[in-house]
Design a protein around this nucleic acid. Sequence first.
DNA 1: GCAAAAGTGTTTTAGCTACACCCATGT
DNA 2: ACATGGGTGTAGCTAAAACACTTTTGC
Lengths: 242, 242
Amino acid sequence: MVTRLRDREVVTLTADLVILTIREGELCLLLVERANEPFKSRSALPGGFLRAGETIEETALRELAEETSLDGLPLHLEQVGLYSAPDRDPREPRVVTCSFLAIAPNLPVPVAGSDAHAARWVPVRDVDRLTGGLAFDHAAILADALARARTKLQYTTIATAFCAPEFTISELREVYEVVWGVEVDRPNFHRKVTDADDFVVPTGKKSSKGTGRPALLYRAGTARVLHPPMVLPAAPESVVDG
Amino acid sequence: MVTRLRDREVVTLTADLVILTIREGELCLLLVERANEPFKSRSALPGGFLRAGETIEETALRELAEETSLDGLPLHLEQVGLYSAPDRDPREPRVVTCSFLAIAPNLPVPVAGSDAHAARWVPVRDVDRLTGGLAFDHAAILADALARARTKLQYTTIATAFCAPEFTISELREVYEVVWGVEVDRPNFHRKVTDADDFVVPTGKKSSKGTGRPALLYRAGTARVLHPPMVLPAAPESVVDG
DNA sequence: GCAAAAGTGTTTTAGCTACACCCATGT
DNA sequence: ACATGGGTGTAGCTAAAACACTTTTGC
């Protein structure tokens, strides 16, 4: 069968971002309020349209820069999946979106919303209670990105992307506890992280925050895979795209 | 900034498939010969255009059905990534592709090529030697899909997707050895697989193929994640999209 | 000194590795 | 009988879990 032109549907492509960070011990997500129809004034993931000459990754990075004040920070950005249900967006031409998982350190400024729409950090566990829920299929996109983040904490070093350039082992442990929602044994975590090959490297400096013994400061190492992996107690049914 | 229509580029979407199977102890890949420009008569991944009303998964399944004779078989199909470099395809409108990893049991018929183009199984390690290499960015797409398959063998039960509905433990072990390119200790593998929770379930039947003691036959269990994971000896730098 | 947080040691247990060994079938 | 592949047992090692303990700071 020869492919005929009428078999192809032209679409517009968007990049939608699940931008995660940790604020005050809570896993938070950046949401915007939609300024236009469809789903006007509903909460949605930040995102935008692919422009001529750019890759979808460049679209995602551009939107990320517009929504947050991160510039050259040690950011993690990865594709999660393509969402293409024909009825996911009523606009014409059809809108298909590529979702991205972005992980950011806690930003001092809540959000520098340069656009008209209000951008804000929302605790992930409060998302269900948003009036009307998320726009489009963004609830499903969020769930998949969260699952990806949770599994990737196990086998990769992305946990450091939640931290400032210099961080303590306890801050890194908090990442696991907050994202997984479980307690992690402090002494064993310390050993495991410092023993792992190039996960974290000591800076020599100390933290000196508040009471208690000052913690040593570390920065992220060059390792991308975590060997051996960090395993969470109960088996997580959280392997995405499978 | 308000999004203007001229900022959006319309694109056509394709699904490209990395269909893997094991034939005669070799990891093989389904390739087609392109019938049209661009890259006419070059080897390429099978794929096709998104049609109106279908999801990209349906596009992939439709192409898979056209290229192979699998019908309701226990097939594994998952998205790997979106490839959107502006110069990856010279056609207009711009062509962006979503790649899929498909894992199939060894099919008795090599390929039922219903289309004009010749489809054939090619050992993965021979792909580099193809005259001219693969069309488009398919070499990169293949590399990413292979990395995904190799890592997913560790933490998931997708290895059973390479096997017929009923299989022996040795056949399952061959999957790991062929995909990873390493030897796996037979006795330990047997224990690990049969001990894992619902990875494989015995059927009670025996194989009786050739000489030697007949092996018990198993079928795939319902577990999707493998706990504890199967680890390959040396750390693989093979975590994709990270 | 006391509370609080960081970091180290120790015991127990689970899982993996590397084999040796036995079992069931074809020739 | 013996070759061939399937399956089990076992000793030694490695790593993880649980928890006691020491160290360094602020008050």
